[in-house]
Nucleic acid binder design. Sequence first.
DNA 1: CAATGGCATTCATCTAGATTAATTAATCCC
DNA 2: GGGATTAATTAATCTAGATGAATGCCATTG
Lengths: 179, 179
Amino acid sequence: MNYLQEIIKIDKSSKEISCKKGEILQYAGTITSLAYYVKKGLLRSYSIDGKGKEHVFIFASEGWIMADIESQEFNTPTELFIECLENSELIVFDRKCLVEAKLSDEQRKDEIRLMSRRIAVLQRRVLLLMSSSAKERYNSFLATYPDLPNRVPQHMIASYLGITPQALSTIRREMVGKN
Amino acid sequence: MNYLQEIIKIDKSSKEISCKKGEILQYAGTITSLAYYVKKGLLRSYSIDGKGKEHVFIFASEGWIMADIESQEFNTPTELFIECLENSELIVFDRKCLVEAKLSDEQRKDEIRLMSRRIAVLQRRVLLLMSSSAKERYNSFLATYPDLPNRVPQHMIASYLGITPQALSTIRREMVGKN
DNA sequence: CAATGGCATTCATCTAGATTAATTAATCCC
DNA sequence: GGGATTAATTAATCTAGATGAATGCCATTG
């Protein structure tokens, strides 16, 4: 939180906004360096592939920052949409501003810690996608994000896992049977 | 390079080492905060899953840093092995040392830039794993790392792509036919 | 309250890629 | 150089999960 307060001080353009369920905060194809800290509520980012299929990249609930670092780093148009899944309270700030600012060592360390965490999450995700069955990935999802199943429609969870809603439905049926 | 020179100055335990093809630099199950800058040569990191199957997580050739940020961030034992694929010249340093050190804003920015790049790579990888066929992933691999196919055995590329060596062989045959 | 439209479920079929196994081609090493 | 080990290819089968289509379920909105 501390870190965020600093950001707000530094980035004069940063501000608190509230947004409604269903709003799209970012469209693929645009160039932006905005990031969204989730104070309350829930966001998701997703891409749409060549066949028009959606793929959920990440969910961001309270305390997480949603930012398309990939496009910002390479300065290319975003592949990601960002959508508001619940009425939310957000703090928007400009990552470019952050990069250019002069920060203390402590502040930079906080930034690095956040990035490390993100890398860690992505590393797990890659290894999971490569080595586990759909059922294993679903169980791992439940263990890692126990509150999300109640807040996110099932077909988005399926998309996050890289499977179809039908496949997830089948997995759930089988799991119920085993309890 | 600049960034690295600084690291070497700061981390008194850092040193240049050379290692031979086939050497294992890190074993899964250990706790370590070492990172390896590749001056010359090639490394790979990989995990071994419950069924004894290897999964290549990442290759690191000249100019890249190999580090298991996931385990270092959460301070848990590594899931990753790091293996030397060619006789290599490396600079080993301790990330913990780096975290604790007092660095200039410029130095921290360099660090953040490196991490951003890593996140970008992982983001692409996740989206690719979720949305593309094996053939598409292979083509993307060829485009992104054009030098690696000549330096890395095919079964490791297959493993990186998340498919079997047989499947990769078939894909290659089909591609030759189409040229 | 009906009616509409999105969501989850079920089932029948299909397919990309896994698995198994055998064959050939490279590498290694004494 | 020749025997042994590892890598790549091919082909025959199998399977997890995709696709397509039908059905029931709320939850909205008029």
